[in-house]
Design a binder for these strands. Structure first.
Lengths: 341, 341
DNA sequence: GTTAGCACTCTTGCTCTGCGAGTGCTAAGC
DNA sequence: GCTTAGCACTCGCAGAGCAAGAGTGCTAAC
């Protein structure tokens, strides 16, 4: 059944008011504050209908109405307005994300930081998966008599290095030889492809010194590659939840923090979300622990391909309009920064 | 005034009991549970003396006694026993810190992780300061037509790299030329020395291409060096505080988390502590926010020189004996791992 | 010096109460 | 037939009052 114009207006007013105040909103408040042109009694009747249709709930008889997840969904899909960021906010975002240093991970961490500051919620970001990323070259550099730096550079610009202590000293020239050989072998292959290859075997050589070196490097090469696959998860604004009335008791705050701190779980949840701006509200989330949270994520791109995610998590009562705009603005900005001209 | 043998025994019992139970301990409990050989009334008299001397306090008339910071100090200095770690714990520690991968930062992060798991407290670690660390070499590697990787290796084994996007394309050979020139210029100097030099000026050269390249690399070189100076702070077990009765209210838990999350402050606090095992109890801490926390830190070494710190923070009521032993064991282990044979 | 006994104090948990906010229903008005 | 005023009713919340329990401090006897 379609909602009448007036019902929509009432619903919008309730949602807005509740988002702002966190208090159940009553019919009297509504008619006074929002100039509905009808009496509280009429509004009560309408609210009663809305409740029947599942848009409102009632914490108890003598309290005002509270929007249900369904109401938030309607609000997000049809009722809320776009919010323009203030000039100050825009400036702060572009300033902090700019710079010619293309320190990918740092920049992303930064983005999460800005996001939590503006929204006063807990924000997070994950770096892109690198499965499809192709290796550019491998470099093994001397650092000490028996220490080397193994450096792997991917086409995506991702760089990873590991400091290795070798059991035996190595002949200097083997390093560059092995680097070249490995680069020759693996350049242009994706990380996941390489990991499925029989890497160790693929390095039998008749130059004995090099073969010995390869033997101690290879296992670490694999481990380093694996760690390149791992997405990083950044969290920021964790303590923001303490100023949110919904989490004004120890049990809830604890559950929230523990949920978010189960990082691997949380990474999986984020990874499985679609591209673009995605909003999931309360019970729309599959996870038990997120039944009264809302999650807003958006994706950013690197050179139009690799995809990372940025978002916030908070109570279902959040400023969907503002938060969505901010997240969109930041991810757009990120994508632009990360895309070569 | 020196405490009698019996007073010491009573004090020890009170501290132990309170550490275990978090409940004020009464005279009756004490005489029953700890087999003191005297009646509750006698114990009451002794407790009254101890209170006068500042070792005990009284939350209110009809509650048992609670140890003061002074009592904990005495306990830590004279009363507590060394605790041997279980075989399981020892094994778990050495297993997790071993491996020939000398990924310094990762290993340290790991150590903090183990520490919080064993102690059920919030743990932290800071990586060594690199001020005195000397540069080994600088390498600028091609990554893309206009992207390079700037890599700085210090003698301490610390490696830092930054991906830079240059405004103009660069001639390939300039990179290795500039790398060599920079290495020649800075090798063996400490990071802080270099930062006080007039770096940009020191790179005037008549090879024009190289001079242009240097111009865009140098500012980033400085920034990267600066970031090498920054110690990293790892925190773990943050949500452990929720299971500690002392933080069983929102206000306190919030304050704790916010205090620890002021990372720069917290880094400074840690950095200013002496070497070796240091225990500060409640009011012994200078910081306002730590007046009812205790902090235990110990230092680990890298090749006998550079010094990082590992520790826990929790309520003054903590298992000083166990925690101290664990921290000592882990830092010993770390120092051994990080020291070349 | 040690101990039993007892009055006293303070916290904690419980119930009871009144107040305020808001609803739902009914009957009258437009 | 929709809208509105009026009113009874419901519930949560905060404060008061009370009893139970734990532990002390003091006194007097051992």
């Amino acid at each position: 059944m379609e909602l009448t114009e007036r019902k929509l207006r009432i619903l919008q007013a309730i949602v807005s008011d509740f988002i702002a105040s966190a208090e159940p909103v009553g019919s009297r408040t509504l008619s006074k504050k929002y100039d509905m042109g009808v009496s509280p009694a009429t509004i009560r009747n309408e609210m009663s209908d809305l409740e029947e249709q599942g848009y409102l709930t009632h914490p108890h008889t003598s309290a005002g109405r509270v929007p249900s997840d369904r109401a938030y969904r309607l609000y997000v899909d049809r009722l809320m307005d776009r919010v323009e960021l203030s000039e100050r906010e825009k400036r702060s975002i572009s300033e902090q994300l700019a710079g010619n240093i293309m320190e990918l991970d740092r920049t992303i961490e930064h983005a999460a930081n800005i996001l939590s500051e503006i929204t006063n919620l807990t924000s997070f970001a994950i770096t892109p998966k690198q499965e499809e990323s192709r290796l550019k070259y491998i470099n093994i550099l001397p650092a000490d008599e028996s220490t080397v730096v193994l450096m792997i550079v991917a086409e995506s610009g991702k760089v990873k290095n590991t400091v290795l202590r070798l059991k035996a000293p190595y002949p200097e020239e083997s390093l560059s030889l092995l680097s070249k050989a490995m680069t020759y072998n693996y350049r242009g292959k994706t990380i996941s492809d390489i990991l499925t290859m029989d890497i160790i075997r693929s390095f039998e050589t008749d130059i004995e010194a090099m073969s010995r070196l390869a033997e101690s490097i290879m296992p670490n090469f694999i481990r380093t590659l694996e760690s390149m696959l791992d997405t990083n998860l950044y969290l920021d604004g964790l303590t923001n939840i303490f100023s949110i009335p919904e989490y004004n008791n120890l049990e809830k705050a604890k559950m929230f923090l523990e949920m978010v701190n189960q990082r691997n779980n949380f990474k999986d949840v984020l990874a499985s979300r679609d591209e673009g701006v995605v909003i999931t509200i309360g019970s729309e989330n599959r996870e038990d622990l997120m039944q009264d949270c809302s999650l807003i994520t958006a994706t950013y791109h690197i050179n139009g391909k690799l995809v990372g995610k940025l978002g916030v998590i908070g109570p279902t009562r959040m400023k969907y309009d503002k938060v969505t705009s901010v997240i969109e603005y930041i991810t757009d900005n990120l994508s632009r920064t990360f895309t070569l001209p």
